[in-house]
Design a protein around this nucleic acid. Structure first.
Lengths: 160, 160
DNA sequence: CCGTTGCGTTAGTCCGACTAACGATGTACG
DNA sequence: CGTACATCGTTAGTCGGACTAACGCAACGG
């Protein structure tokens, strides 16, 4: 059987697959990402939070206290921005900043009890938001989606 | 069988799933998207092009000539930015801008022969870049990935 | 005819990612 | 020891992309 070419298109070397714009993974990725970001940002705003807050708090709870620079590495927030994020968190008494006695260049950041409580709230909020984000996918598909993204990310982190 | 909890974690209400930061679809999405964007942007730069150029040209070839506003809608480039993009394309003679006789508010944008040639080049460049972007995935997985993204996008476009 | 809408264009805002440089401190090594 | 270099937290500032506001003009609908 002969491979079908779009019949209504003059064969001037035009693409074999129509809709290339819509199918380009890079474009899909960026468009979905923008929407995802808006959803999350707006959702978190209603809880007086920002995504960086969640990242910092979650990192503190999961991997324990750390210096600002270390937190920065864990969360991929630039250390110059981390200052502001931690200011916001400290203002709300969600974290504690104290000088490291063993290295006076460092601050040790610790999550507070309020911080843990807040984090728990944010986790719920995010669960709901992700439910909305991934609404059209079945549980299995969601897993697959996360898996594919993870593999892509790992690959590109290694390569960089 | 009893549901396993992470054994090394005191049960202070901590999340049942560790690594939540890394597994959050929204975070994965944004991180992969950033990397994808960098890859594409840098790759296209080597061909003296930007992603908007590709979007505009591809839209012109696939759906035919159109006004700037229409192009804007097709490609999701803001009409205020479209001006600049079309300037860049017109400078390079990839596109022709002419007044619409039927509606003097409009410009009709047409892709030129050079434009088609350029587009073909960009398509090749992008094919290679996507190969790099999706390197860790098998062909079937790439399709699935695109499919999942498409469904997500469609859903959120409808809802908005 | 007039109010509304859509057009192309300019200018400018906003925000997030990222860089540069700082003083203070720590580390390695001759 | 001393001295070169690296790392820390912080401030300031750049850059680019997404988005808004407003404009003069033209078309449309009642």
């Amino acid at each position: 059987m002969i491979r079908a070419e779009a019949a209504d298109m003059p064969d001037d070397g035009a693409p074999k697959t129509p809709d290339r714009l819509r199918r380009r993974a890079s474009r899909l990725l960026s468009q979905v990402s923008v929407r995802s970001d808006r959803l999350i940002t707006e959702g978190l705003a209603q809880a007086d939070a920002r995504k960086w807050h969640y990242a910092a708090l979650a990192s503190l709870e999961e991997y324990g206290p750390g210096s600002q620079a270390e937190l920065s590495r864990r969360t991929d927030i630039y250390r110059s921005d981390m200052v502001g994020v931690l200011n916001e968190l400290a203002e709300r008494d969600l974290v504690e900043r104290m000088p490291d006695p063993d290295d006076r260049r460092r601050n040790i950041i610790t999550i507070s009890t309020r911080g843990r409580r807040h984090l728990r709230r944010l986790d719920k909020v995010l669960d709901d938001l992700h439910d909305e984000l991934l609404a059209p996918l079945s549980p299995a598909e969601r897993d697959q989606f996360v898996q594919l993204l993870t593999r892509l990310l790992d690959h590109h982190v290694r390569v960089s």
